[in-house]
């Protein structure tokens, strides 16, 4: 006997992501997924960003890592309320893991929430967390071929931070070419070349975040 299901295998995750999105919207929190390879500088970017934003808002960070509490400690030191999720081997965060953390956070106090995913350009792509936006951190040492190799990840993100531009003189990487490669797979991408160590070039990103925070607060 043949049974036709025509059901998405992602349904359980997509439904939870929708629930998370509604909860965040109702609480007036602007949430941003932070994606990228291990070592791209996701946490360092969040450290600088938290330092800059906590002047006039409350910032939360959910850190997803296979193990350790190290990244949560780092952004906590920058002034964020931080929760670490250890995926215990899993290669991505999913909406159920994030939802469990959201339930235990005082969302009413937060204006901005970052969700740093496990460093990986494949597995997390299709697992939405419920965040309103997705940002990708790509560092110069990774070269210019990543957008073409991982188009789905790059297409799923609205903004890109090209990190470690302090290394531009020592690496054979052309920033213009990299920008072109990103736009080839995602012509809508907003791109900011930055140095997370010095916070150079991060003003545009901060402004984009403030705009999102204003929108989310107004929509509450």
């Amino acid at each position: 006997m043949k049974i036709r299901l025509a059901q998405s295998a992602m349904q359980k995750y997509d439904i939870k992501a929708e629930q998370n999105a509604r909860l965040l919207a109702k609480s007036g929190v602007f949430a941003v997924d932070v994606m990228g390879s291990p070592g791209a500088g996701k946490t360092e970017i969040l450290e600088r960003t938290v330092e800059a934003m906590v002047q006039d808002m409350t910032v939360g960070v959910i850190e997803g890592d296979i193990c350790t509490e190290r990244d949560a400690d780092r952004v906590r030191a920058s002034g964020a309320q931080a929760v670490q999720i250890n995926t215990e081997g899993a290669c991505h965060l999913d909406a159920h893991m994030v939802g469990e953390v959201l339930e235990n956070m005082t969302l009413g106090e937060l204006d901005l929430l970052f969700i740093e995913n496990v460093g990986n350009l494949i597995c997390p792509t299709r697992f939405r967390s419920g965040a309103a936006e997705r940002a990708i951190v790509l560092s110069l040492p990774e070269g210019t071929d990543k957008p073409e190799k991982y188009p789905s990840m790059f297409r799923s993100c609205a903004v890109a931070l090209v990190n470690k531009i302090d290394l531009i003189d020592v690496l054979p990487v052309d920033l213009a070419e990299l920008t072109l490669e990103i736009r080839r797979v995602n012509p809508h991408m907003r791109i900011w070349p930055v140095c997370a160590r010095t916070a150079q070039g991060m003003e545009g990103w901060y402004e984009w975040l403030r705009e999102g925070v204003r929108r989310s607060a107004a929509g509450r």
Partner: peptide
């Protein structure tokens, strides 16, 4: 982009 459980056959 989809992953669909299209159908199955059982007895």
């Amino acid at each position: 982009e989809e992953v669909i459980i299209h159908s199955y056959r059982g007895t």
